[in-house]
Simulated assay, not measured.
Amino acid sequence: MKKLNIVKIGGNIIENKLELDRFSKLFSTMEGPKILVHGGGKKASEISKKLGIAPKMHDGRRITDEAALDVAIMVYGGLTNKKMVAQLQSHGCNAIGMSGADGNAIQAHKRPVGTINYGFAGDIDQINAPVLKSMLELGLTPVFCALTHDQKGQLLNTNADTIASELAIGLSVDFEVTLYYCFELSGVLADVNNPSTLIKKIDFDEYEKLKSDGVIADGMLPKLHNCFHALQHDVNEVRIGNLTLFEKENSNYTTLTL
């Protein structure tokens, strides 16, 4: 079975020009078919404020009303996505910008209103694996922003970590998938303020223990939930770390296994 790398890049790298350029070079040199997923929440908040639209958050999650959705479409699908595609092209990677609506790649539904109304937030229903497989076979590298659609004309703001996980699951039938979550830390740390406390391997039992002990908390909770969700649905391997993830001979990152 052919190998496929799916990489989700974090916002702190996207907003740092030097780090982004370094990432683009490293990603472009990865052998074989690959997919990139990115968010853009920091830039969206910045643009929102310039437009006089106050970003709305709840427990670290963005509430996407109609105005916020328009900003997300402009920033995620336009500004950030196209800059990323152009940069990858400059390094010889034949990237193509994508949202979930393009090629009907990612179908989702608007999250039902519960205690909190998240507005136009999307929860994923299905990945269009045949279309993506065809693109990969043509030598194209899809670059997904954090937008999906409901097949009724509505775009939806969707968590980029979740998009990466669901893409990995949807394509695991046809590929041996390695899923990477690349951000500013070297991996999962026992002490988030101490880089030397990297945990190199975490299985599901250890994950449950680290959660109960409060070691895995805040923004790392949903990230690792997506990681183990992917592993439980036939994704081959998940790695979490910084840009050194893509440097040969490096082993300073966190590998997750069942």
Rank of each mutant, 00 (worst) to 15 (best):
K2R: 14
K3Y: 13
K3T: 15
K3P: 00
N5P: 04
N5I: 01
V7E: 00
G10V: 05
G11F: 05
K17R: 09
D21M: 08
D21R: 02
F23D: 08
S24K: 10
L26F: 06
S28P: 03
E31F: 10
G32P: 02
I35R: 02
I35A: 02
I35E: 01
H38P: 02
H38W: 00
G40S: 14
G41V: 11
K42Y: 13
K42C: 09
K43F: 08
K43G: 04
K43R: 14
A44P: 05
A44F: 02
E46D: 14
E46L: 15
G52I: 14
P55R: 04
D65C: 12
E66W: 09
A67Q: 08
A68N: 00
A68C: 05
D70S: 11
I73L: 15
I73T: 09
M74E: 13
Y76K: 14
G78F: 01
L79Y: 03
N81W: 07
M84Y: 08
V85S: 05
L88P: 00
Q89F: 06
S90M: 02
H91G: 09
I96A: 07
M98D: 10
S99M: 08
G100F: 11
D102L: 10
G103C: 12
G103D: 11
N104W: 06
N104L: 07
A105I: 11
I106A: 03
Q107L: 09
H109L: 04
H109V: 15
R111T: 07
P112V: 13
T115V: 15
N117D: 15
N117E: 09
G119Y: 06
G119C: 12
G122P: 01
D125K: 06
D125G: 03
Q126N: 04
I127G: 05
I127D: 03
N128E: 07
V131T: 09
L132Q: 05
L132M: 11
S134Q: 14
M135R: 09
L138H: 14
L138D: 12
L138K: 15
L140V: 14
F144K: 05
T148M: 00
H149S: 09
Q154P: 01
N157V: 03
N157Y: 02
T158F: 08
T158W: 07
D161K: 02
T162E: 10
I163P: 02
I163K: 04
L167Y: 00
I169Y: 06
L171G: 02
E176N: 13
Y181T: 00
F183W: 09
E184R: 13
L185E: 12
G187C: 13
L189A: 12
V192W: 03
N193I: 04
K200Y: 14
F204A: 14
D205W: 06
K209A: 08
K209R: 12
L210Q: 05
K211P: 04
G214C: 12
A217D: 12
D218V: 13
G219W: 01
L221Y: 01
L221K: 01
H225T: 00
H229I: 03
D234L: 12
R239G: 01
N242K: 02
F246M: 01
F246L: 02
E247Q: 14
E249Q: 11
E249L: 08
L258C: 10
